[in-house]
Design a binder for these strands. Sequence first.
DNA 1: TCTGTCGGCGATACAGTGTATTGAGAAATA
DNA 2: TATTTCTCAATACACTGTATCGCCGACAGA
Lengths: 237, 237
Amino acid sequence: MTNELVWDRPEPPSRPSPTPLSRELIVRAAITLADGGGLDEVSLRKVAAALNAGPMRLYGYIETKDELLDLMVDEVYGEITPPDPSADWRTGLRHIAHEIRDAAKRHEWLIDLLGGRPNRGPNSLAFMESTLGTVGFESIDDVMSAVAAVMAYVYGAVRNEITEIRAERSTGLTEEQWQRASGPYIERMLATGRYPTLARFIYEGGHPDPAQRFDSGLTYVLDGIATRHSPASKPGG
Amino acid sequence: MTNELVWDRPEPPSRPSPTPLSRELIVRAAITLADGGGLDEVSLRKVAAALNAGPMRLYGYIETKDELLDLMVDEVYGEITPPDPSADWRTGLRHIAHEIRDAAKRHEWLIDLLGGRPNRGPNSLAFMESTLGTVGFESIDDVMSAVAAVMAYVYGAVRNEITEIRAERSTGLTEEQWQRASGPYIERMLATGRYPTLARFIYEGGHPDPAQRFDSGLTYVLDGIATRHSPASKPGG
DNA sequence: TCTGTCGGCGATACAGTGTATTGAGAAATA
DNA sequence: TATTTCTCAATACACTGTATCGCCGACAGA
């Protein structure tokens, strides 16, 4: 009984009585709303309203709200350009990592949906296909392990970055300003002297730009993979 | 109809000695509920009911529901034992990574709350304090960068693992069984021949135990850090 | 002991949410 | 033209977080 048949449902015969609808239209409307005002803006009523339709109308095209969210995620996966197939695994993985980060910055809501449920839409699968394909190690398990590690890092790093962006927006301050200004609560906590190391880091730490931070962490992961697996000649496999 | 039976009226709230409340009690009740039935079980009404109180009573101790969630997260941070201060950075970070993973498996809801908002409770800060303290590199920025990378990886890896556990629970099948059995939808997609690499991985890949997978990814990150930073003698910074 | 104020707490209310059910009205078929 | 079928909107329900209000017990002063 569990869902199934989610991604390739046939469109219902479109009665052109009101404005015709389609899954595509619905998903795009939802994405537009989410891009503009966050995931809170994506309620079935609001999406329907954006399409001049009653809320229940959507259920002709969509089984449940979760399905709509899955579709939104898959749509964004479709925006991701696969790595050059002739690239070596390092540049391939690096390319993909940055693609995901870029997509998540275009659609800040993406990261809230990404880890939550398994993504098995066609674009997600195509993404995995090209990602796995870019790593040419001999052992399948080595490839899986490397890709999983990179994806885990990317996911966590992007999440942190987006969370930070949101916090800055909600306080109207940059983290740097905020530390100096500074959040009276944190100020008080640090003043207790219970967190000397933390205090030192906050006051003395530099603030490299986020892209660079992301990339240097990514470099750790790639270096670590490289130390344990042979470069493995790409063509031929 | 002059009803009435005035004598055995249900005793009007003769102050049934409202159980004394506290933030601690509320947070513990919320955690118990969440451990039992997931975050959905944590509504103010349900938490209040578990404490024999009306929903509005909680607002005497808590500003908003988000604050309650923050408190829950911080409580779990309190369960985490810091690394041995004499340990080198590698074993220190490894210890912390596993502590977080263990905590997230004890409290499956944790990972849904972790990345969402900045965690600045006392236990979270203490956690950061000991985490930063365990890495003795000379440059502050190198420490930050290393810790951030490890935490990002841990976060992403744990998220994937928990998501997988949930999916298995909801389908009643292990991922391995599921692939063999197998989800008719995925089956169909793979049969299209559009995802040859993916198909090969699914059918031929091994399924190492999750703890091992987590640890091997972690090893990549630690190795990568090691290649770029000097071991740095621990005592006497 | 009576009275007045105060304050904590419960009930109620409101604007939302996702979705099941129902009912109307139009198109397709006989 | 009559009947069936099918789409879509309206309504309804259970639930959410939270603002407001009003009761009622407890204490202060007379």
